[in-house]
Amino acid sequence: MKRLHRETNVSLAEVENLMKCTYYSQRKDINNGEELQTLLEEWPFLFQEVGMAVHFYELTGVSLKETFLNSLEKKGKRLLDFMRNTCADKSKRVLQAVTKLQILRGQLQGCSEDVKDMVLLLLSYFDEREENLFHHVEQTCLGHEIQMESLPVTPCIIVCGSSCYSSTRFMLAVDRKVVNDNIPTFISAICLMFGSYYCLNIHYPVDLCSTLEFLQRCCFNFNPEKGTKVETKKNKKQLSVNPRVLTLIADLSDHEWRETC
């Protein structure tokens, strides 16, 4: 795989097969706490879309990107309508976000633009800072030129451009290190970011826990009955499901029911 990673024309089927065959060794290194740089060197495809998809599926039984796209097709438009209308009417913060996104988006249309709206509105709804998930750099910026100390420790998407709507390239950073410097679409970037939390045994940070858990439960259809991905804090009770996420899910379901009546 190290040799294949240096080549330009790589067979995706071959990479998928090799990732499946070496899954046990990958998990062993990750669970043993190997340094991120070591993982990058030993398992370079783990941080690429094809490799992470295989590892995530072997780990969870969920098809990362396929599940996300299927969920968007079924729920995406209803969720956006609910956020833009019902939530915007009740929350000044969401209303301001809707107005700002309309200006940034302009005449752009398409699934990828809808996903950008959805994620940014979820951050606004849950009152979680965009800077904790997205880091903006110049359009032509290279991975080694980024000031790493300005990045969050947890997985984040580096946006190469003034906004998600103007960017034609994204990067993924983990533990203040760029692990993938050429992600062509926002949807791929979201899937890689989310997959990193599971494949690398990383807890959701408290300041992003609601947005990430909503994506987990409603977009990636990953709903464990017990446990939580949120980092634990001393002397604080941990709930299996975030109450704010439950509230949004319930309100969205009620909205959908009223719309069909």
Rank of each mutant, 00 (worst) to 15 (best):
E7I: 02
N9L: 06
S11C: 11
S11D: 12
N17Q: 10
M19A: 10
C21Q: 12
Y24W: 10
R27L: 12
R27Q: 14
I30F: 11
I30S: 03
G33E: 08
E34R: 13
E34D: 11
Q37Y: 07
T38G: 06
T38R: 10
L40D: 02
E41M: 11
P44S: 09
P44E: 10
F45H: 06
L46T: 09
F47V: 07
Q48R: 13
F56D: 01
E58G: 00
L59Q: 11
L59D: 08
V62A: 04
S63C: 09
S63W: 07
K65P: 00
L69G: 01
N70K: 14
S71P: 03
L72W: 07
K75G: 07
R78E: 13
L79Q: 10
F82R: 03
F82Y: 13
M83H: 04
D89F: 07
S91T: 05
K92R: 11
R93H: 09
V94W: 01
L95P: 00
Q96L: 14
A97R: 09
T99I: 12
I103P: 03
I103T: 15
I103W: 13
L104I: 02
R105Y: 05
G106H: 02
G106R: 01
G106I: 04
C111N: 12
E113C: 11
D114N: 15
V115K: 00
V115T: 04
M118V: 13
V119L: 10
V119T: 05
L120N: 05
L121N: 00
L123D: 01
F126Q: 01
R129D: 15
E130I: 06
F134S: 00
H136Q: 10
H136T: 08
C141W: 00
C141K: 10
H144T: 07
E145H: 15
Q147E: 14
M148P: 07
P152H: 06
V153L: 14
P155I: 03
P155V: 04
P155D: 04
P155Y: 02
C156K: 04
C156H: 01
I157T: 12
C160P: 00
Y165N: 06
S166A: 09
T168C: 11
M171R: 06
A173E: 04
V174E: 04
D175W: 05
V178E: 03
V179S: 03
D181A: 13
N182Y: 06
I183N: 02
T185P: 03
T185N: 05
A189R: 02
A189W: 00
I190F: 00
L192Q: 07
M193G: 01
G195R: 03
C199T: 15
N201K: 13
I202Y: 02
Y204G: 02
Y204C: 03
Y204V: 08
P205K: 08
V206E: 13
V206K: 12
L208M: 11
C209R: 15
F214L: 08
L215W: 02
Q216P: 09
Q216E: 15
R217K: 14
R217M: 06
R217W: 07
C218N: 14
C218Y: 07
F220S: 05
N221M: 11
N221D: 13
N221K: 10
E225C: 11
T228C: 14
E231T: 11
K233Q: 15
K234T: 09
K237N: 08
P243E: 14
R244K: 15
L246E: 15
I249C: 12
A250Q: 14
A250M: 12
A250W: 06
L252I: 06
D254H: 08
R258P: 00
